[in-house]
């Protein structure tokens, strides 16, 4: 019994670990299982992103593999505080550096810095005063952004319904919501800095 318990304690369940913990375990202890768990989580996502830049499926697949191989090397060199932004940066860097040698780009979508923002856990957003602040900022948004955000978050409509209601394409709807959210986030963070330094 004791031996089995010890074994269970020693063999970690990588599915339950956070991305940063997996990266740390691979970097410090060389646990290959941690890297494989990262691949299980993000392999298909990296492939999907590569599809935006490579017209051929095999090229996209090859790029995905190379990104992960490079990632395995980079993880050991530099510690990673926030994994998702780091991964996105790694992908965009790889594609940017190899864009001249790869197949002609079909969907040339430039990733701006505004798109590199991820949601962060911040309990302050749950405060009622902050909620009111967010609501007032939404009212100041551009018309399309405001419309899409209100329809999505307040009326609980999905992108297609909003697109049909507003006349935009679903992709445009998604873009308006994302940009509106980033604007709200920046404004809230500015306000919080002034209120609670």
């Amino acid at each position: 019994m004791d031996r089995t318990k010890v074994k269970q304690d020693l063999v970690p369940d990588y599915r339950r670990l956070l991305d940063e913990e997996l990266a740390r375990r691979y970097a410090e202890k060389g646990e290959q299982g941690a890297l494989l768990a990262i691949f299980e989580r993000y392999g298909h996502i990296v492939l999907g992103i590569c599809y935006n830049h490579y017209s051929n499926a095999m090229d996209a697949k090859e790029a995905t593999q190379k990104i992960f191989i490079k990632m395995s090397e980079e993880l050991k060199k530099t510690p990673v505080d926030k994994f998702k932004p780091w991964l996105l940066k790694a992908i965009t860097n790889y594609i940017a550096w190899n864009s001249t040698n790869t197949v002609p780009v079909k969907q040339n979508r430039i990733i701006s810095h505004s798109q590199l923002e991820f949601e962060e856990v911040d309990s302050r957003y749950e405060d009622e005063n902050v909620a009111e602040l967010i609501y007032t900022i939404i009212q100041r948004l551009e018309r399309d952004q405001k419309e899409c955000i209100e329809l999505f978050y307040f009326n609980k409509k999905d992108h297609i319904l909003i697109a049909n209601a507003t006349g935009h394409t679903p992709e445009q709807v998604k873009g308006y919501i994302q940009k509106g959210k980033i604007f709200i986030k920046h404004k809230v963070q500015e306000a919080l800095r002034h209120v609670r330094p």
């Binding site: 990296v46 999907g48 990733i111 590199l116 991820f118 998604k174 994302q178």
Partner: peptide
């Protein structure tokens, strides 16, 4: 809406 990775994928 909040995850650029999944959005682009």
């Amino acid at each position: 809406n909040g995850c650029p990775l999944c959005s682009m994928a």
